[in-house]
Design a protein around this nucleic acid. Structure first.
Lengths: 338, 338
DNA sequence: TTGAAAGCGTTACCAG
DNA sequence: CTGGTAACGCTTTCAA
C-alpha cells in the first residue's frame, strides 16, 4: 500500500538539526529581528533541504493572518490577447513582490463565499463591482482589498480602475481627423452595457460634442456571420450618413469589415473602421485594420504596482473611497481601414 | 481610524447562540455524523448570519489536511477560445463537486515552490510534465494529484492527459479524401516541439503511412505577416508538390491563407488547408477555413470528472503510474479551404 | 444532545 | 543567542 507519506514539519527539521522549533522558524521564515549564527543557520537549512521541508501555508496563514494570494475573477476566460498579456505581466510583477496571482473564472461573478471557502486572498480584483453585501463578506474574512473594474455602483461598490478613456479618444480623434462626421460605436454583446462600455461611449460623445457633431450611434453587433451582415445593413438604413465606426474590439471590427465587404461597401471609402486591441489577425485582414494598440505589459505592471501599494499601506477596504486608478497606455496603429 | 474589524470566529457564534464551539462546528461544517435538533441548528445559523460569520479556510485546512483548490498552471494565458471554453467548463464542473479551479499563469512552468508557498492545492494540472524533484515537493506538501499535459518524461514526470489524436486524424483524413498526396504540418513557434505537437505529427504520419504516402513535412510558421509569406514561399520551394497543410491552430491556418493569397496561390485549388479550433474568425476569412471543431465544454467536464475521481479515490501521486486520459471530442467543419 | 479539550503547523513573545 | 510556550480558528474524539 502507498500510505500517505506524513508531512515533514518544522519540528522534524528542529530535531534533525538539534535545535528548537523556534529557531527553525526564525531561520526558515527569514525573520530578521532575531539574529542567528551562520553555523546554526546552515545546519537548519541543510536539514530542511535534506528532509524536503515545505512550510505549511495554512498554518502560516492561520498564525500570521496574512495571505500572499491575489485573486482575479473573470466572468469568462476572455480570448483577447489584451487580457492574456495583462494577466501575464501582472502575474510576473506581483510575483516579484511576493504575491501570487490566481485567476478564477466563474459564472457572472463568483459569489464571495465561493472564493473565500477555498482560498483566503489578500486581495480580490474583479471586472464588475461587487454589491455591498459581498464586500462586507470579504472584509469579514480578512480580505484587505477588493477592486472592481470600473465606476461606483449605487449600492456602494468600489470605484474606478482601469482608465479606458484614452482608447476611445484615439479612435474618435482619428476618425474625425479623417473627415468622418457621423460616428457609430459597434458594441459587443458579450459586454452588454458594462461600465467599460459606458465609459468609452461617454468619451466619444465628449469628443463629438467638442467638434459640434451628433452623439454616437450605438449598435450591438452579433457574432454570427449572417447576423452581422444583417446588423450592418440595418444600421446603415437607420443612420444613412454613418461614415465612421469605433469598434469595441478588433474582433468586432473584423466582423464589420466582413459585413461591409459582403454588402458591397468600400472600407475606408464609404465607411472608416477603427478597432481596439491590435490582434495578430488585424494586420492580415483586407483592408488591414486601423486600431488602438494597448501596452498590455505596462498595464499589467501598473495594476500590480497599485495593488501592492494598497496592500503595503495597509489601508482597509471602504466602499467608494480611495479608488485605485490604473492608466492603460495606448497608441494608434494606422493601417488601411480608416 | 479604521481599525481592523476583528474577525468573527466560531466562538463568537457559539457565544451568541448560547452553545459550545463544538456544536457550532457540527452545524456550520455540515457534519452529518452528529445530529443536532432543528431549533439549536436554527439558532446557530441565525447567529452566524447575523454576525456575518465566514469560516477561516486556513484553520479548516490546517485541521482537516484537505484543500478544495485545484490549480491549473499555464505558461502563458493562451488566447484561444478552446482554452477559454475548456477552463470555463472545467471550472464549473469542479465547482459542482465542491472544488475551486484557479489558474496560475507564470514563466515557463511555475516552480512548485511558488505555488505551494501561496495555496495548498489538492491537485495541480499542468501543460508540461514536472521534473521528479518538483513532483516530490508537491507530494511533500500534501498535494494529492499532479497531472501534466502529455507523455511521460525521462525523469519520471507524469503520463498522458488530453488525447490529441482525433484532431490530427480528422485533419489528415480529410485532406487525403480530397485527393491530397503530399501533406505538411504548419506548426506554431509558441509550442515548439511540445508533446502535443509530437503526438499530432505521429498520428498524421501513421495515417499517411497507411495510405502509402510520404511522411509529413514539418514547418514552423512565424507570426509576423511578412515572415509568414517568406516561410510559405520557402516551404513550397523545398517541397514543390506540397498540396495539403494541416495547421496546428486556426491562427496558423489563417496565416497560411494570408501568405498563399499574397503569393498568388489558390486555396483550395493549389493547396488545401485545414485548421484546428474553429475560431469565430475562421468562418469569415476568404476562403472560409475548413477546420476541426472541439467540443470544449465536454472536454472541460471530462477533465473535471477525471480529476475528481482521482481525488475521491484517494490515490497518491506516483510518477508514470495511473495515467489520466481525457478524451477530447472533435468534429470536422468543412468550409472552402480544403 | 452537548461540551470540554486536544491538536493541526506556525510564529513570536519573553525568559533563560 | 536559544528555547519554552501561548496563541491562531477549526474539527472531532470522548465524556457527561
Amino acid at each position: 500500500m502507498a500510505g500517505v507519506p506524513s508531512r515533514v514539519t518544522g519540528a522534524d527539521v528542529a530535531r534533525a538539526a538539534g535545535v528548537s522549533q523556534a529557531t527553525v522558524s526564525y531561520v526558515l521564515s527569514g525573520n530578521t529581528r532575531q539574529s542567528i549564527p551562520a553555523t546554526t543557520r546552515k545546519r537548519i537549512l541543510d536539514a530542511a533541504d535534506r528532509l524536503g521541508y515545505v512550510p505549511h501555508v495554512s498554518a502560516r496563514a492561520l498564525r500570521t493572518g496574512q495571505s500572499s494570494v491575489v485573486v482575479l475573477t473573470l466572468p469568462v476566460m476572455s480570448d483577447s490577447p489584451t487580457m492574456s498579456d495583462m494577466i501575464e505581466s501582472a502575474s510576473a510583477a506581483l510575483g516579484r513582490q511576493g504575491f501570487t496571482l490566481l485567476t478564477y473564472v466563474g459564472g457572472e461573478r463568483p459569489s464571495a463565499a465561493t472564493l473565500l471557502a477555498s482560498v483566503a486572498p489578500a486581495a480580490v480584483l474583479a471586472l464588475r463591482p461587487f454589491p455591498a453585501t459581498e464586500l462586507a463578506r470579504f472584509r469579514g474574512a480578512g480580505v484587505r482589498l477588493v477592486v472592481p473594474y470600473a465606476e461606483t455602483t449605487r449600492d456602494g461598490g468600489w470605484a474606478d480602475w482601469i482608465d479606458w478613456g484614452p482608447t476611445a479618444q484615439l479612435q474618435v480623434d482619428h476618425l474625425i481627423s479623417r473627415g468622418r462626421r457621423r460616428i457609430g460605436f459597434a458594441a459587443s454583446a458579450e459586454f452588454g452595457d458594462a461600465p467599460v462600455v459606458r465609459r468609452r461611449i461617454a468619451t466619444i460623445n465628449h469628443a463629438l460634442e467638442e467638434h459640434g457633431l451628433e452623439p454616437v450611434s450605438l449598435r450591438t453587433m452579433p457574432s454570427d456571420p449572417a447576423a452581422i451582415i444583417r446588423a450592418l445593413r440595418e444600421w446603415r438604413e437607420d443612420v444613412p450618413d454613418l461614415d465612421g465606426i469605433c469598434a469595441h474590439t478588433d474582433s468586432i471590427a473584423i466582423g464589420v469589415l466582413y459585413a461591409a465587404r459582403e454588402l458591397g461597401l468600400s472600407v475606408p471609402d464609404d465607411i472608416g473602421v477603427v478597432g481596439a486591441d491590435d490582434l495578430p489577425f488585424s494586420a492580415m485582414v483586407v483592408p488591414a485594420l486601423t486600431t488602438v494598440r494597448p501596452n498590455n505589459l505596462a498595464l499589467g505592471e501598473n495594476i500590480a504596482t497599485a495593488v501592492v501599494n494598497y496592500l503595503r499601506e495597509d489601508r482597509t477596504l471602504e466602499a467608494g473611497r480611495n479608488p485605485i486608478t490604473v492608466s492603460r497606455p495606448v497608441s494608434l496603429v494606422v493601417r488601411q481601414s480608416a
